[in-house]
Design a protein around this nucleic acid. Structure first.
Lengths: 104, 104
DNA sequence: GGAACACATAAGTAACGACTTATATTTGGT
DNA sequence: ACCAAATATAAGTCGTTACTTATGTGTTCC
């Protein structure tokens, strides 16, 4: 398995949407499949790719497989983006809002 | 031309490296080519892709073409990343540092 | 005007990536 | 024990993509 790059893993819109949905709540594969216009194997393959990048993890329960997102795995991407924030002062406000939303 | 997705545009390591180098300083194509193990047309093609995504812009001067990065075009990516920052409180410190570096 | 230079575009190729259908594996229910 | 459900894996297909070499376009210098 070739090095899993976050950019490449998230480049596919369907796979990215899968990750986004899993950030909201843990879901089974068939629950995920609903709403996407692709087959179940396609979903499983996207989940395998996301798991390879550490972006999701699986919890088995009987014949069901529940997946949830692991947003910490976005660390390298966050770092990368932050390196270019400084070129971009007009975004300061939005960043401050993000900070405020995070504080209790 | 199909919609230029930032994730997809930045997915290729060589192309991403081109963008990164252009954030440091404006450069000509041949100046860029040095350091990458690919042909000049390959560089030109990456530049065309980056330009299509608004990530770089070109300034012509005689027979030279100088390129520089346009980090503002990262906006959608920054927004996307910020949506997942809130799942990730342990990164608060780093974010604060980023903020501080941006203030005068 | 012509040759060398800087770059872009064209055309071809080989690898990759996202999908499909088909099949295997495990589990639950009857 | 059997059958259906939930998921994973295999194998094949087809479009995309990142490269190559070859060629075109414009510019500078002699």
């Amino acid at each position: 398995m070739p090095e899993p790059d976050l950019f490449r893993t998230l480049a596919d819109p369907t796979r990215r949407a899968v990750f986004e949905r899993l950030c909201g709540k843990e879901m089974s594969v068939s629950e995920l499949k609903a709403g996407f216009g692709v087959s179940q194997p396609a979903i499983s393959q996207h989940l395998a790719a996301l798991r390879g990048a550490g972006l999701v993890c699986e919890r088995r329960e009987g014949r069901f497989a529940y997946y949830r997102a692991e947003p910490q795995a976005l660390a390298p991407l966050v770092d990368w983006v932050d390196r270019y924030r400084k070129y971009w002062p007009e975004r300061l406000e939005k960043l401050k809002n993000v900070l405020q939303d995070m504080e209790p």
